[in-house]
Design a protein around this nucleic acid. Sequence first.
DNA 1: CCTGGAGTTGTCCTA
DNA 2: TTAGGACAACTCCAG
Length: 483
Amino acid sequence: MSSNHPVIVWFRQDLRVADNPALAAAVASGRPILPLYIFDEESPDIRSAGGASRWWLHHSLDALAKDLGGCGLQLVLRCGVAAEVLEGLVAETGARQVVWNRCYEPGAIARDTAVKAMLRDAGIAAESFNGSLLLEPWRIKTGQGGPYKVFTPYWRRLRELYQAPIVVELPERLSPAAVVAGNDLNDWALLPTTPDWAGGLRESWHVGARAARTRLTAFLEDAVADYPRDRDRPDRAGTSRLSPHLHWGEIGPHQIWRAAAASMEAGGAAALGAEALLRELAWRDFNHHLLFHFPRIATSNWREQFDGFPWRDDADGLAVWQQGRTGYPLVDAGMRELWHTGFMHNRVRMIVGSFLIKDLMIDWRDGEAWFWDTLVDADLANNAGNWQWVAGSGADASPFFRIFNPVTQGEKFDPVGEYVRRWVPELAEMPDRWVHKPWAAPADVLADAGVVLGETYPTPMVDHAAARNRALAAFKSLRNETT
DNA sequence: CCTGGAGTTGTCCTA
DNA sequence: TTAGGACAACTCCAG
């Protein structure tokens, strides 16, 4: 069976060795293995990665190359149009088979469909696998046979249908294909240089499959029991922070499911926490389910009546929000956490999103674009799905009258202002009582804290109560227009 | 085809 | 201080 004709493993968003069905299939083929990553900025309809994502990708590829090296394989890097790169490499190496794990974004599906057809026309075996979702979008249907549009019934059905696949153990040493030339990762210039803004990212993250597994283990050992309560607390390290690892496939959802299921055996608080984690994991699947069945939601309102919403064209307001100078401490803390670390706590994402959309009435797509560029976990399905959820324009979305009050939310979920003080140090000396609303503090309190509103920290850019009424009126006008 | 319960994450006002 | 209801209506989805 073994021959000199290699099998190409085309890595994309599955940058791991363990629990990788395409790699396992390559091993099972008995052929020499040629692992490949293609940096493809040219295939149409695929959004190029944002700045933070590029930084992550660089380190993730570096880690993958090391892990593959440990198995005796050399990761080959090439850039260009994926179909052309593959065609060339097949000719160059005499490969008879190409395998990969599927992607689910509309542009990626089109690209992969064309690649598969091209390879099969050339007599090359091409096979794809599921390594990235619990249940692929076409595997789960409502009683009427259509896609789900509401999360809770989706989740119930997923729990009924899901079975974690059997773990395939790979041999320690894998059979390598003959060496071929590839790019030097550094030549792709994925890391920022002028200026190098990635210092905060380096402080905040360990990239790669090993780091992902370490994080999962630590979460299940230390945090899972408190997860249902602490996951809403930006001042605590209560969330899993697995999202960037999941986006690049450094860890797969099945690995998380299996590990969480083991925690569930323990019962008690740990079981409840593990259940809550899996529910969040299912949201990731649900967002991919929606994007697959309704690809226009990446850029268009799911509810078409939102197409008439009177968004404000406010470049200055957008910039103030992006820079974390709104004058609302919790909003500013979130935006600065994002800028510094490439990440923002989930609850704070909802709050800054609500502020942009409802207080400033700026189009959710502007917020989505900023997140796309700055988040290390930027993911088309999750980003669009969650922004539309906040906007109220999405499937199963938040009702329009649910407008987050950044002060109330701060007092509830960051009760002593620890999160605000960490990211908005100019408010570090403010007493707990006023840290979420410095404009309301007495003059002597501000003076004692060294805060001069409008100088050391901004006054609120809008009055929330008035902005709330403006947003409610806008939503009401939208309803009247369409009836 | 019809029915009815339900739907991630809130806020504000009133009693 | 706290609890309950209003805020809208609509669509989804299982039976």
